[in-house]
Design a protein around this nucleic acid. Structure first.
Lengths: 333, 333
DNA sequence: CCGCGTCGTGACAACGTTGTCAGGGACATG
DNA sequence: CATGTCCCTGACAACGTTGTCACGACGCGG
């Protein structure tokens, strides 16, 4: 900046004025400065600028998601990115892989970087630690999982209702032995979806067979193994409810390996690309990631804009997408 | 920081020493400062710190990919993120959507933010504009598509060879009427893969039917429409080569709509999750995104570390993953 | 011709941090 | 006891920028 000023024969302050399009600079000077800027490839230092400007924004938001390469996280991030762009803001993205420690480290790091806001798909059981982190005034919005131990904005889908709908869909077709495969129970969405599963049975005065409920599956491979085990029971399930997209794929794989894809009904939570191209096409409870992402971005940027009203909790309804796999009838009917 | 110093009864410099774990602070003082830091929730201001430290890193790299929500971009980003974490670096991610203007804007923005390095999946035809941008010393690594008009590091897969292998795989089974569906020709990978397609024919002294070569398809839906049109020809293709994962899904959809999934052979470029669960499972040329991402990260961090040797261009070989869709025989054989 | 407002410009301080250097005390050495 | 060395600590300047204020030139009305 000093060099530019020297080359244009003006003071640094005047360069600053030109660069920031401030009024009160004669056309002649403005032109000289612009020429100097161009000639020297001058780039304003955003860090220094932010340092000086009182309470200026960094134009950065942090997004902590489960796994960038999972279609749910990736879709969410994409929607967030699109909204952020409209606010001249860039997105710092990181994967948590359900690591509670990583979540705390990353939040700490992002707050130190003075991000304008945080989007968190929490991996921790409780987020009390955030109280201290957010004291600086950084707003945060939770997504996919509600906050515990702290009251901040959140956008989640109705997991209980969604799981109930999915399960009821299978029950309505006569299935009574429905398996439920789910993620680690400490993950909120995993346990809530199992609640919905049980509720659907209860609504009909029935009870699920506890042997068919398999929680704590951490990968597609574990789901495949678990499904094989279930199919080897004396009284195997006639239908399956999977609580997450990677578990759905594991189950499809197990069914494929046994040639049972058209015999066992399946409804999965979470849609994913090409689910409609499977054979049979996969019936799913779809969360509209675009809508979730936009809702999150909307709330976040309102907060960044100065909204200090009470935290809001948005609950979106997932929708049943009927494609075929969930409509396989009970054998012998 | 001043407040911490006051509370601990020391100078700001001493606080700085404690915060940065510098030697030469008595245990007594260190303890007092740490207590004050904890009590006041003091966060060092990274921006100010970077400003003062001469030539310090921001611990930030920018990644400009085609589309965050596409499995190829997302997988790449994930691999980059994992490597970056080991270098204490966070990733700024953005989608280009093949927008040349967006690429230039974003590069400009990221350079102004003083990122330590850039990863670019270019959307522009030429990247001369980068010469000025990179004069500040920011290293860049290109991925998926080689640089034009500037010589910087790159990691690409052998697109010509991969397309040739895929096409030869179909030719070897007797197919002679193979359709080729591809992306916008200005995209390097799209045009190169068509070159490989033609080369495979040429190697056998044959020529592809130009009416079966359909470039400039920008979405899965366009691929579906194009495929329907091809199947309505008097002499329709007996096999298909698709140059990108979203085009593969479009073709599968068209085939499914006509009940031809087991009649028309298909080999796609780019693997994607659950390609093995389609019926028939999809035969693809797989690019190992993890390896690509790690190679990119490796080169980038060597540059950031001060490596000033001549730009390197890494070419990785994709591999044919035989699953079934590519092995459908020619009708009547 | 004087006083006053307006306009363009620059000097200076400050944002939060750290590199440099100097000062003062404790201790060892001659 | 004088001198030197080491250790701990703090004052100060500087990183690149912008907010504040003041200054001089100019034009206008009285």
């Amino acid at each position: 900046m000093r060099d530019v000023a020297a080359l244009a024969g003006v003071s640094v302050k005047t360069v600053s004025r030109v660069v920031n399009d401030e009024p009160g600079v004669s056309a002649d000077v403005r032109e000289r400065v612009e020429a100097a800027v161009a000639r020297l490839d001058y780039r304003p230092n955003l860090a220094a600028s932010n340092l000086r400007r009182t309470g200026a924004r960094t134009g950065l938001v942090g997004a902590l998601v489960q796994d960038l390469s999972n279609s749910f996280s990736a879709g969410l991030l994409r929607a967030l990115e699109d909204s952020a762009r409209q606010h001249g803001t860039a997105v710092l993205a990181a994967s948590l892989d359900e690591g509670a420690d990583r979540e705390q480290e990353l939040v700490h790091d992002l707050v130190s970087r003075r991000v304008d806001g945080l989007v968190i798909m929490p991996a921790t059981a409780r987020q009390d630690y955030l109280i201290a982190e957010l004291r600086t005034g950084t707003p945060a919005v939770f997504v996919d999982r509600p906050p515990r131990g702290i009251d901040v904005d959140s956008v989640v889908v109705d997991n209980v209702g969604g799981a109930r709908t999915a399960t009821e869909h299978l029950l309505a077709q006569g299935h009574r032995r429905i398996a439920a495969l789910s993620d680690t129970r400490t993950i909120h969405t995993a346990s809530t979806r199992l609640v919905g599963f049980a509720e659907a049975y209860a609504a009909r005065g029935l009870e699920p067979d506890p042997r068919l409920v398999v929680p704590d599956l951490r990968s597609s491979e574990e789901a495949t193994r678990a499904m094989h085990a279930l199919l080897e029971l004396d009284d195997p399930p006639t239908a399956v409810f999977t609580a997450r997209n990677i578990l759905s794929s594991g189950v499809v794989r197990a069914l494929a390996e046994r040639g049972l894809r058209r015999q066992v009904a399946l409804v999965g939570f979470d849609d994913f690309p090409m689910a409609d191209l499977l054979d049979p096409p996969l019936t799913v409870m779809r969360q509209d990631v675009g809508r979730v992402g936009r809702a999150v971005a909307h709330m976040l940027f309102e907060r960044i804009g100065g909204d200090t009203s009470a935290p809001r909790h948005v609950v979106l309804e997932p929708s049943l997408v009927v494609r075929g796999s969930g409509e396989i009838p009970l054998p012998g009917r």
